[in-house]
Structure formats: C-alpha cells, structure tokens
Design a protein around this nucleic acid. Structure first.
Lengths: 144, 144
DNA sequence: TATTGTTATACTCTATAACTATA
DNA sequence: TATAGTTATAGAGTATAACAATA
C-alpha cells in the first residue's frame, strides 16, 4: 500500500493542531498571544519592523501595534537603525530573552510527545520533517 | 547519532508554519479567516455550538459570532436540536460544503510538498505522523 | 520615485461576566 | 443546580489606505 499525498493531509493537520494548542497554552500562561510568542521567539536575533512583519506573514502596519505592546511590557526595545534613518531595529530585552527561552522550554506537550517516541522513531522522523519543511519553504518562496 | 526530542522541535515548528501559511493563504483567497476555514472543514459533520467551540479550542461565546457571520454568508444553518430545546445544530449548506471541499483541495503548498515526497518517504512518514498526532492528542486530553 | 514606519479605520478573534431558557 | 446559547464588553490581531520622513 503506497500512501497518496492526500492520505497524509489529515494526520499532518492533527500534528499541526497539537503543536498550536500547546503553543497557545504556554503563551497564555505568560499573558502572551500566540503572535507575540512567535514574535518573541523570532527575535532571537534583532530584526527591523518590516523583517518582523515578513516573518509573521502579516502587514507591516500590524507590527507597529504588536511591538508597541511588547515594548510597553518591557520585552523588546525599538532603536533607530544605524545605517538607514527610516528604519528601526527591534531587539529583545534581557527579560524578553528569558521569556523566549521559557516559552521554548515549556512546550511540554510537544516536547513530551517527541520524548515519548523511541530513539529509532526520532531518527526516522527527523530527516522527514527537515525534508518536508524544506519543500514547504520552497513552495512558499516561489508563488505558493 | 540518536536525536533528542529537542532536536526535532525546530524542524517540527517549520512544518507547522508552512502548513498554517498555506491555510491562511487559501482561506484569505475565499474571504475567510483561518478560524472560519477550520470551522467549515470541521463541519463536515453537523455539530452543536458547544461542540464546535470545543473543536476550535475557544470559548462558547465566540462560536455565536463566528457562526452568525458564516450564516449571513450562507455557508451554514443553525437549527434547533430535536432532543434538547436549549441546543442548536450547525449544518453546512451546499455552498458551505463546496467551499470546504475547495479549501481542502486548494492547499497547494501542503498538497504539493507531500506529493514531492517519494512514495517510500510517504510510506515512512505517514505512520510517524499518526503516532505523533496520537501522542499529542493524549497529552492534550490529560492535563497538557 | 520607492521604501520604512506610522496612523486611522474597520472587521474579526478572543476571553470574561452576566443573562435566558431550558434541563 | 447545572447546562446551551446569547449578549455586552474589552483587548488583540488583521488588512487597506493615506501619510511623513528618508533613500
């Protein structure tokens, strides 16, 4: 029995749902929305406003309010870019970095489920996830 | 080299992101939010308001507005439940069913990426996704 | 002219709390 | 008393359009 692409859609959707439910739970526990949690994790490296919006796949105008709320909570800073006076660089504060680290660590359902796999299963799954992630990113980069 | 659970986190996050970006694109193309798209796909079978809210992992009060908007677009109907006069049953209209079918079919990035895998890769990945989905659902059902 | 970020606006999603009509 | 659904409210995410400052 060779599975078709469509046979994998529903199982993949279930995994995606499990991941997002866990992220939402952990983010909510710290008073963050999933968008803020995603932004904070992405800000592992400083990003301009537009680069952040691109990462979150939303309009640049949304980043203004999003970053403003995170800034007012002391999680990030917004500094003028040194090379381009139109641009701003968003950098996490030490508090922001701590929280990002905690969010990653506290995704217990995802972490635990991956830990419940046998080492052999993990060794099989890892390259498949990498490959699928590459293929999805490729298609996203081209015209979707 | 035996991968740890944490080694799989980032690859899994990439796959999740690819899936959601595709869903958002397809939903937006039809003037739906991702929540409405998820609801419409879930309504493959009629659900009560509370069952729908549970599926979407949101408060029951949200379902009221969500279904009202979908109803005003002619995608679903809200009928009194036959057995319990407090309850209502949400059913997709023919238009709603069509749109749900189209959304599933138009997730080209996900569908295409799965199709880019070799048959052997799909045969390897399918049971792993099922297993991971089961583990995530288990942990969600217990206390997260 | 084009780009970066912002503001204004409007709509949707989301949770909480209070209400109603049933059970 | 408890449950199903609704309403009211408030905060957050989202896109569009228009704008200022800069490139």
């Amino acid at each position: 029995m060779i599975p078709e692409a469509s046979d994998l859609l529903e199982p993949l959707a279930r995994v995606v749902r499990g991941y997002y439910d866990d992220l939402a739970t952990v983010a909510g526990r710290h008073g963050l929305s999933t968008t803020q949690a995603r932004a904070l994790v992405a800000l592992d490296r400083p990003l301009s406003m537009s680069a952040l919006a691109e990462h979150l796949v939303c309009d640049a105008s949304n980043a203004t309010g999003l970053v403003a709320r995170m800034e007012s909570r002391g999680l990030v800073r917004r500094d003028p870019a040194p090379d381009d006076r139109r641009s701003k660089v968003v950098t996490p504060t030490p508090d922001g970095r701590d929280l990002a680290r905690r969010i990653r660590a506290e995704m217990h359902s995802v972490h635990g489920a991956l830990g419940d796999l046998t080492p052999t299963e993990r060794a099989v799954l890892l390259p498949m996830l990498d490959r699928l992630g590459d293929l999805l990113a490729d298609r996203h980069r081209r015209g979707r």
